[in-house]
Design a protein around this nucleic acid. Structure first.
Length: 108
DNA sequence: TCCTTGACGGAGA
DNA sequence: ATCTCCGCCAAGG
């Protein structure tokens, strides 16, 4: 059951919806996803929302990277390795923990 | 209720 | 290119 306030839950829904639209082979930044969801300034909240996703989610959480073009996890972590793996399966080149936003950033 | 933390980002140095 | 500082908004203690 959901005990969160309606407005917060609604914001999460907006983010999930926008995330679902990000196509394979493309990436978006946390801040960009917030804007696409109609929530400018909510970059941090996007991160907090992705953190709450179930491990077996179908949403493309791995297509979200930070504004510097890097994966927002320590390079030694499993989370980092999983995200890099999924991105590479998408055909995205990850060189030294860096994705070229110039080539892969999605613009709807 | 107050204080700290965080899958963020932009401005400055 | 890097690093620090600071504003941002929730979540957790």
């Amino acid at each position: 059951m959901n005990t969160d306030s309606p407005d917060i839950d609604e914001k999460r829904r907006m983010i999930w919806q926008s995330l679902a639209a990000v196509p394979a082979g493309k990436v978006v930044t946390y801040g960009q996803l917030a804007q696409l969801a109609g929530l400018p300034g909510y970059a941090r909240f996007v991160g907090a929302t992705l953190k709450r996703l179930p491990k077996d989610t179908q949403l493309p959480w791995f297509r979200v990277i930070n504004a510097s073009g890097k994966i927002s996890f320590p390079e030694a972590s499993d989370a980092y390795k999983r995200q890099r793996q999924r991105l590479q399966e998408d055909g995205i080149t990850v060189k030294d923990n860096r994705v070229s936003l110039k080539h892969y950033q999605w613009s709807p």
